[in-house]
Design a protein around this nucleic acid. Structure first.
Lengths: 340, 340
DNA sequence: TTGTAAGCGTTATCAT
DNA sequence: ATGATAACGCTTACAA
C-alpha cells in the first residue's frame, strides 16, 4: 500500500516549486523544455499519477462525458460505444455509460446520476417511450451540452446525429416492390421514436410513389421483440389476403417472424420477401440470410464524441450545426432476392 | 448558467456552520434530527448537489468502480451490467465501463485508464488472449480490490465469480450422448480462457464416463465467430466419419454452423444434434431452436458488485472468499431432441 | 522562466 | 449538538 506521489513530492526532489511541476506536466508553453523533460522523467520514475479530483475541483470541470443508451446488448451499440471510447480516450475524457433498458423512468434516473456526477457533456440515445426532453432541463439551464444520436427528438440548441430513416425506409420498401411484391407489410416499433416514425413514413412514400395502396392492417406497431415477430407471423396466417413482402424495422424481430412463417410452410423469399433493419450479426447466420439496412456505428460514436468534445473546447458551436446525417446502405441478401 | 450551490450557501442562509450542514447532509448521528430536516429541505429547495470532487479529494476515495469486459454486445453482458448498475446505484457508487474487444493490449490500456481514474475497485472479465494478471499489479500493490467474473484466472487474494464450466460442459455432452450421439464434436474458443478450457474438460470427462472415445479431429479450437462456424461445417462435410453430435461453446457460432450444415443437407437434430452455450436470444429465433446452457447474468453482476462494495465497506474480506459458483441450467430445445 | 499563495468544496479533528 | 479550522492536491493570477 504505497502512498500516492504528488507534485509536491516531485517538486521537493527536484528543488522546484509545485507550480513549475504542474505547469510542466501540463505542457505549459512558458516552461523550459529542458525542465519539462526532467520533470516528466522524474514523474514517471516515481509513478506519479495526476489526482483528477484535485484537478477537477480546481478547474471546475470533470473531463467526463455521460452516455445514456437504451440497451448495450446490440452489435450496433457496441460499435457506437467503441467509437466514443476511442475518441474520448484520445482527448483525455472519461466515459460514464448507462442503459435505460428502454424505460423512460430509468432514463430519468440515469440523467440525475449523470447530473450529480457533473459530466461535462451528454451523449444520449432515447428510450422508446421518451416523449420530450424535459428531464434534461437541468443540463440546458446550466449550459451543459448534449448530443442526441440515432434515437432523437428535434430540439433547437441540440445536435442530432442520425441516418435518414425516411430514405432508408423508402429504399427498403422500394427494393421489395422491385422484387415483385405488391402487398407489403411493415412491422415497426413505437412511433414516438423518430427512427420508427421515419421508417414508416418512408415505407408509405414508397408505396405511394409506386402506385400501391397502403392499408391499416399492413402496418403493425409492436415492441419488436421475438414474441412480436412470432405473433405477426400468426396474424399473417389469418389474413384473407396475406402480404407478399415484409419490411421489419429490426433484424431480430424480422428473423423471429421469418422463422415462424417458414415453420408454417411459407417459402422465403418466394411467397414472402423480407427486409430487416440494422444489419445485426443474426442477419448473416440465419437461413435464408436477411436483407437489411446497415449503418455505421463506430462512425456515429466517433462523430458524436468528437463533436461534443470540440464544442467543449470551444472549437465548434453545436447549437448552430443541428443535424448530422450519416450514410446507410441497403444490403441485399437472400431473404428478399427473387429470381424474377 | 446558474452558479453552483455549496454547503456554504446553505450555511449562510440558515445561520449555521458549513460543518453542521455537511454532517447533516451525511446523516451524521450527532446532528439534531430537526436541523437535519431543515437543512435537507433547504438544500433541496436551493438545488444543491454535493461536489463529488471536493468530497473525493478530501475522503481519498472516489466511490467509483471500474468495469472491464471483453465486449458489450451480448445479451448476457448487458444483463450483467444492468445488475452491477443496480447495486452500484443503490450504494451510491458510479460505474466506469470499458470494453477490451477481446484484445489484451486494449485491456491493458483500459486498466491504465481505470488506474488513473482512481477507481476504488475493479470488476473484470478477461479478454480471450490474456494470460496473466500482471497488468493489474499496480492495483494489487495499492491494495485496490478486484473481482473477476466469468472469464477469470485463479489468483490468491482475488475473488472469482463463475459457473462450473466443467460441469456444464459435462452436462451438455452427456445430454447429447443421452440423445444417442456416439461421435461428438466440440467447437470452442481459446483454451487460455477458463470458460473454454473447462467446458472442454467437461466434454472429455463426459465422453470417458460413457465409454466413448475422444479424438483430436473432434475438438476444434477457434475464435467462435460466424466464419468459424461455417468453416467447421465445411470441415465436417469432408470427414470420413463425421460426428453425429455437436457441442459448441457459444450460441452464435453454433447457429452459424448449424445453418451451414442444414444448407448442405444435414438434418438437425436427426443427423446431427447440436448444443450451444450462453442462451443468447438467437437460440430461440433460429429453426430448429437451439439447446443451450443458460446462466444468470443479472445475478452475476449483482453479486460481483455487491461483494466488491461490501469489501470496500469492510463488511467482507474478498481475499478469504475466493470463488463463488452460480447455478446454470441446460435448456433443452429442438436442435438436440431426437425422437428415439 | 520560475516562484508564491490563494482557493476550488468537502470532511475530520479538536474545541466549545 | 454545533463551530472553527486545517487539509486533501491541484491550478492560476500575480510577482519576481
Amino acid at each position: 500500500m504505497e502512498k500516492d506521489v504528488t507534485i509536491y513530492d516531485i517538486a521537493k526532489l527536484l528543488q522546484l516549486s509545485p507550480a513549475t511541476v504542474s505547469r510542466a506536466l501540463n505542457d505549459h508553453p512558458a516552461i523550459n523544455s529542458n525542465t519539462k523533460v526532467i520533470i516528466a522523467s522524474k514523474a514517471k520514475e516515481m509513478g506519479y499519477r495526476s489526482n483528477m479530483f484535485a484537478s477537477n475541483l480546481r478547474r471546475q470541470r470533470t473531463s467526463t462525458i455521460g452516455v445514456i443508451v437504451p440497451r448495450l446488448d446490440s452489435a450496433f451499440m457496441s460499435t457506437v460505444l467503441a467509437g466514443m471510447e476511442k475518441v474520448a480516450n484520445e482527448a483525455n475524457y472519461n466515459l460514464i455509460i448507462s442503459q435505460s433498458l428502454e424505460s423512460f423512468k430509468k432514463e430519468v434516473a440515469n440523467t440525475k446520476t449523470m447530473f450529480d456526477s457533473r459530466v461535462d457533456g451528454l451523449l444520449v440515445s432515447l428510450a422508446s417511450d421518451t416523449e420530450n426532453l424535459d428531464h434534461f432541463n437541468t443540463f440546458f439551464r446550466k449550459g451543459i451540452p448534449m448530443i442526441l444520436f440515432d434515437r432523437v427528438i428535434e430540439q433547437k440548441n441540440c445536435t442530432n446525429i442520425v441516418i435518414d430513416n425516411v430514405k432508408a425506409g423508402y429504399e427498403a420498401t422500394a427494393h421489395l416492390i422491385d422484387q415483385g411484391c405488391r402487398r407489403i407489410m411493415h412491422i415497426t416499433g413505437s412511433i414516438k421514436r423518430n427512427v420508427y416514425a421515419d421508417r414508416l413514413k418512408g415505407y408509405r412514400l414508397a408505396l405511394m410513389d409506386h402506385g400501391l395502396e397502403g392499408a391499416d392492417e399492413l402496418v403493425k406497431i409492436t415492441n419488436l421483440t421475438r414474441e412480436d415477430g412470432v405473433q405477426a407471423a400468426a396474424d399473417i396466417q389469418q389474413m384473407n389476403s396475406p402480404p407478399d413482402g415484409l419490411f421489419v424495422a429490426s433484424d431480430f424481430c424480422a428473423v423471429s417472424c421469418m422463422g415462424a412463417l417458414m415453420q408454417a410452410g411459407v417459402s422465403i423469399p418466394d411467397d414472402m420477401a423480407v427486409v430487416g433493419f440494422n444489419d445485426d450479426p443474426v442477419a448473416q447466420v440465419i437461413q435464408p440470410s436477411l436483407t437489411t439496412i446497415h449503418y455505421p456505428g463506430q462512425e456515429m460514436g466517433e462523430i458524436a464524441a468528437q463533436s461534443l468534445i470540440n464544442h467543449l473546447n470551444g472549437l465548434l458551436r453545436i447549437n448552430t450545426t443541428n443535424t448530422i446525417l450519416l450514410n446507410y446502405e441497403l444490403i441485399v441478401r437472400k431473404s428478399s432476392q427473387r429470381h424474377l
